[in-house]
Amino acid sequence: MNEFLDFLAALMLLIAIWAQVGSYVISKIQVIVVQTSVLSVYTLISGIYTLSLDLVILAILIIFLRGVLTAAILLRKFPARSQLIRERSTTVPSVIILSIVMIIVTLVVYQFAIFPIMETASSGILTKANPPVTAIGFVIVIQGMLLIATRKSKVSQFTGYIEVENAMILLSLGIFPLPLIVEISVLLDVLALVIVSSVLLSGNMTSERIEELVG
């Protein structure tokens, strides 16, 4: 079962790389839907495997609040021919190379800086931790941040943020699941931010340099 969970986590990482590669804005919303769906399946299987009702509830909420509602809110902001919107002036090839380099660097940092913490504590509180999933969680966090930092499209930046949030849930599941009340509140908070962001997306769809905001 653990191998299957690891496979799902690896799938989430591949989806994060897909977000880096695509230059059509619509693909970013697809990333949110697909990655969230995989996360939801991961949570559901973990819940069934550990007989945890909390995780099953969390899985349902993840797919509904993040997979369906978030995507629907963002899609409403697009004109009818949304598939044709491409990001302006992206340097996708160099970002892909940077993305791969960052994956390697993150895994090396994890191996030498974070894994030892888990290893030394393996006889104690961290026995439940799943190192491969935790490592992938860290990598997706960095990939999400890279997406935010390298793109000008606000939708791409927001996709990066959702990716980071998904990675946090994965990390939490990989290390030690938080109480359900906290997990649900996090989901609701992020949903509120999605609604707020959709209002901010009403204006210019790309983040820009403004003279008054310099200095």
Binding site: I148, Q157, F158, V164, L193, S197, L200, G203, L213
Partner: peptide, 21 residues
Amino acid sequence: RERNQMEAAWRYVLIVSTGLT
């Protein structure tokens, strides 16, 4: 709903939320 305000609000939401994550 001025352009500068929209951009500042976007940066606020994105940077702070990502940091808080």
